[in-house]
Amino acid sequence: MEAVKMGATERRKKIQAVTVLSILGVLIVLAFLVSMNTGYTRLSPLDVIRTLFGGGTAKQELILFDFRLPRIVISVLIGAGLAVSGCILQGLSRNPLADPGILGINAGAGLMVVLFISFFPSKTAAPVLLLPILAFVGAGVTAAIIYGLAYKKHEGLSPTSMVLTGIAVAAGISALMVVLTLRLNPQNYQFVAVWLAGSIWGSNWKFVVSLLPWLIVLLPYVFYKARVLNVINLGEQMATGLGAPVEKERLGLLAASVGIAGACVAVGGGIGFVGLIGPHLARRLIGPKHETLLPASALVGGLLMIVADTIARVIIQPTEIPTGIVVAVIGAPYFLYLLARAR
């Protein structure tokens, strides 16, 4: 009888998970369509459909294919990537406040991009495919420093120490970036200032191509390791007792998280809080099991970013504000709420 009840409960949970994931997918499609219709030059839904099938004017094709579609696709990819990265970090550290932005991983990735801009002439076009690699190196070095400082030999990885160390390292890197920006010429300074605010500056198909390989390679690996994250989330001693090679798996997942976050930051700038909000909202909707939590986090993050970017483009037309500011307006109060609950 108990086995039958457990089986019915599992089936109900699977149906609920599929339903939630389907609804999130539909919402992303709807947000995608609305975002294509929204902008300084308005395109009606019929204009968008006609242009997608090759029946639009040259101006409509330019607006849709060269400006809006690449940016919308990048917004979804960045949101999904940062949310999955945050979900990994929260699982590894067993800390609900873990996030690539709060822990300083985004700042480390950004530092390498700023260094590249600082030491190359303004006329030199930054190699698009090189930026994610540079960001990965910066994020990886930062993550290694945080991990080394927060890890205790006999106690393992301390969740509290990890967050506090990350905040301190992020503050130091931010100060260093301020110093570096002082030597920039006005053109590069303006670019860095907007980039640090979270502007999706890489809004053409070249940047989509530069970001996609990182997500195509790393996201399936992370989804495959979902059960390992479940075990690690039980605690280091419990996971070791169950036979999991904790240190090896943790380093592999941490590297994946850093790679995803670094690539997203290289294209989207210093966007924070997506990695914090996405997993939390997904956990409330679908539960704590990472087999469903990771894809749900990706969908929630993608939806959050596409909505925030659409608002950023239209709220003060004809100009626009960095998407990171809109996300921060949503994320900062939520972070304070989580901090109050943790206390």
Rank of each mutant, 00 (worst) to 15 (best):
A193V: 13
Y151N: 11
E10I: 10
R283W: 02
L293G: 07
L129N: 11
G301P: 13
L196M: 15
I88S: 01
D66Y: 09
A193P: 00
N230D: 15
A170F: 03
K289W: 00
K59Y: 09
I63D: 04
G25K: 07
L182R: 12
I311K: 02
A143R: 05
F65A: 05
N106T: 04
R313G: 08
G166V: 07
G269H: 07
P127C: 05
A266E: 05
K153M: 08
F67E: 10
I325H: 10
V141A: 15
V300R: 08
I63E: 04
V113L: 15
G7E: 12
A31F: 03
F32L: 12
L281Y: 02
I311S: 03
A226Q: 04
K59V: 10
F67V: 14
N185C: 00
V274W: 02
A168T: 12
T19H: 01
L299T: 05
G140Q: 13
M238H: 01
V128D: 05
G156K: 04
A328F: 09
I321H: 07
V217Y: 03
Q317F: 04
A239Y: 12
V34M: 11
V18T: 05
K59L: 13
I15S: 05
G104I: 01
A83H: 01
N37V: 01
R71L: 06
V228D: 15
C264Q: 08
A328K: 11
P132A: 11
A175H: 00
G275T: 07
V274I: 15
R94M: 11
S297W: 02
A332G: 12
T9W: 07
T292W: 07
P322G: 12
V274P: 12
A197T: 14
L242Q: 10
G324F: 11
Q16D: 03
L219M: 14
G39A: 10
M238G: 00
I146N: 12
